[in-house]
């Protein structure tokens, strides 16, 4: 008999096998998230996962807590309504870069600005995986995708910088190889009030890797050899360039009043 998987109680076993391709990093990042939830010792009945659409957006379908798989780009405003209507919930948004930063970019910056108490985990695979590998708002300049066959003429977002500029109170970036750091960051974010953002770099060998001549092992090697841990680094100086170096770490960890705190103070204090 197979021994029980340590995350069994957090998985919807009746939904396994999952849809993620072999060699994909989403599963590892998802496990880190589940481990972090466990380690945080938060009452699981108060943990909610909200996802948008895409490969990573399927995360909500595999976790055995209240979980909501919403529309493309709209996980954050859905989660915002949920958190404000019941502040005792711990709401995690688990979704991809296309979902959170292209179609959902506006929602992201506003939730960060308002300091809504959400833990947002962005699996960044540099492209749209589920629809077959199109260019995203995170695709590196000149990279090849099915919609940039000769190379991407655009420049990508620096996600931690965007999160910081928008007002996030916790900002970190790790690769899927930094499992322990990633888990720890998610745990810290869950235990912290305010808007937290964690970018998790993730290989998509099937779509992005194939077109850019990156075998799964090449990506792992780059993550291993080119990553530079710089906790506290200024988000303006954090490249994620597999040639120059991938700066990872916890960049921001500050406090400011959350939306709910301010709302209670201004609107409900008179009783």
């Amino acid at each position: 008999m197979q021994p029980d998987h340590p995350l069994n109680d957090l998985l919807r076993k009746d939904r396994i096998p999952h849809i993620w391709c072999s060699g994909c990093g989403i599963g590892t990042i998802f496990s880190a998230c589940l481990n972090a939830i466990k380690a945080s010792e938060i009452d699981l009945s108060k943990v909610v996962m909200v996802s948008g659409i895409g490969c990573s957006g399927r995360g909500a379908g595999y976790i055995n807590v209240d979980s909501f798989h919403t529309t493309h780009g709209r996980a954050i405003p859905f989660a915002t309504g949920m958190k404000l209507a019941n502040p005792s919930l711990h709401v995690i948004v688990f979704s991809g870069d296309g979902d959170l930063f292209a179609i959902g970019g506006n929602h992201f910056i506003h939730a960060a600005r308002r300091n809504i108490e959400l833990t947002v985990i962005c699996v960044n695979n540099l492209n749209y995986g589920m629809t077959g590998g199109q260019a995203a708002a995170t695709t590196p300049n000149r990279a090849k995708t099915t919609t940039t066959p000769l190379g991407n003429p655009e420049s990508p977002f620096n996600l931690p910088l965007l999160a910081y500029a928008s007002g996030a109170t916790y900002v970190a970036r790790w690769t899927m190889l930094h499992t322990r750091d990633l888990t720890n960051s998610i745990k810290e974010a869950l235990q912290k009030k305010g808007f937290s953002f964690i970018e998790a770099l993730c290989p998509c060998p099937v779509n992005y890797g194939r077109r850019n001549k990156l075998r799964p092992l090449d990506v792992f090697k780059a993550y291993q050899q080119k990553s530079i841990v710089k906790n506290g680094a200024n988000p303006i100086e954090i490249d994620a360039d597999s040639d120059k170096g991938i700066i990872v770490g916890k960049f921001i960890d500050t406090e400011r009043p959350t939306y709910t705190e301010m709302y209670n103070k201004i609107y409900r204090s008179k009783g």
């Binding site: 405003p77 915002t80 309504g81 949920m82 404000l84 209507a85 019941n86 506006n106 506003h110």
Partner: peptide, 20 residues
């Protein structure tokens, strides 16, 4: 809450409804 657009407003009321 005043949301950033009507897409978000509609999403938020669904989330709130599922929160009870």
């Amino acid at each position: 809450i005043q949301m950033e657009d009507e897409i978000a407003a509609m999403a938020a009321i669904l989330g709130a409804s599922w929160a009870g």
